[in-house]
Amino acid sequence: MGFACLLSLVFPVAGLVVMLVLSPEEGFDPDTGYLGWFIAGGVAQGVAALMFLRPKPSGWRSGWFLLWVASVAYMGAYADVWLQHKPVAQKIVDFGRAGDLEAVARLMVQESGFNLLEWTFAVLFVTAFFTIAAFVTKEARAVYGLEDRDVEDPLAFKAHYGIQ
């Protein structure tokens, strides 16, 4: 679980690095839309990591809820970039149809920048989402005293069907 907490802290920082490196090179101005969503997600994920350090049911519940918040925020950042990307992609189609290869080649640089930003937010979303799943496992919940007594033993079917 410590590893999952560490990842929750490392990934938002890595995402910030990508955004800082990308912005000047690709001619992107940090947009308040996706930056805002990103900051909200990063903070939620970071606080969630700290919550999970408390091995109590309340630590699990707070951390788990904050991870959902982080996932939604990263999805928001992705959606914001995608909405800006969409008209550029449409222009590529339009110029391609018109046979203006020079314009298409110029736009493809911007296209690559949008792609990289989308990948960054997508990776952040997946990290947060997979951490949600990691804390759902029986083993993880046991650490926080949240075992479900009604969960069946995976191999119980063998006795039922007489499989040796």
């Binding site: 590529i92 391609g96 149809r97 690559s112 989308e118």
Partner: peptide, 14 residues
């Protein structure tokens, strides 16, 4: 993509 020569790795993957 309608005319651009070459392509990016990310575009193919995506």
């Amino acid at each position: 993509a309608g005319g651009a020569v070459g392509m990016t790795f990310l575009q193919a993957l995506t």
